[in-house]
């Protein structure tokens, strides 16, 4: 995919997110735009780093890391960036993403319908096992360290 197409898609997702943000949060379009532009720039820079940096680390890792570094307290401009992106709700950002995911799932529906009930039951227990297993360990350690 060309960089130009990626920018186009990111801007489209930005517009969709903006619509959701205006409805779902107390911030208007004008207040949200700086944060959204920052997020788009972080995403682009991360994707670009993923392409040019050696080591084959996927772009998404650079995107998260960049977002993290730019907002560490004390980093130049971190306060401005934090304030700007705070006006974009992360729950709101998920909505366009899951709409795309829902449309993409359509192609898996036939396979899903064919999978037996046993696999579906096992899947549910796999999810529960992972989640509760991790949560119990986290709970014990956080409690021992006195953090909760």
């Amino acid at each position: 995919m060309k960089m130009k197409d990626m920018i186009e898609v990111l801007i489209i997702v930005g517009i969709q997110s903006l619509a959701v943000n205006v409805i779902g949060t107390k911030y208007g379009i004008v207040e949200a735009i700086p944060g959204l532009i920052i997020l788009i720039l972080i995403a682009l820079a991360g994707i670009w780093l993923g392409k040019v940096m050696p080591g084959g680390i996927p772009g998404v890792a650079y995107v998260v890391t960049l977002g993290c570094i730019l907002t560490i307290p004390g980093f130049p401009g971190s306060e401005f960036i934090s304030e700007a992106v705070k006006k974009i709700g992360f729950v709101q950002l998920c909505v366009p993403l899951l709409a795309y995911a829902g449309i993409a799932i359509c192609k898996d529906l036939d396979v899903f319908a064919k999978s037996g009930w046993r696999i579906i039951v096992v899947s549910c227990f796999v999810f529960i096992g992972t989640y509760i297993g991790s949560a119990v360990i986290a709970q014990v350690i956080l409690k021992t360290l006195g953090q909760i």
Binding site: M1, M6, V9, L10, V13, G14, S17, L36, I38, L39, I40, I42, A43, G46, I47, G59, V60, V63, V64, T65, L66, G67, C68, I69, L70, T71, I72, P73, F75, S78, I81, S82, V85, I88, F90, L93, C94, P96, L97, Y100, A101, A104
Partner: peptide
């Protein structure tokens, strides 16, 4: 095909939640 790319804004936002 676009799913990975549409994820990026959210991932950038997650990064900015981790930083502070």
């Amino acid at each position: 095909g676009l799913l990975g790319l549409t994820l990026m804004l959210l991932m950038a936002r997650y990064g900015t939640l981790v930083g502070p």
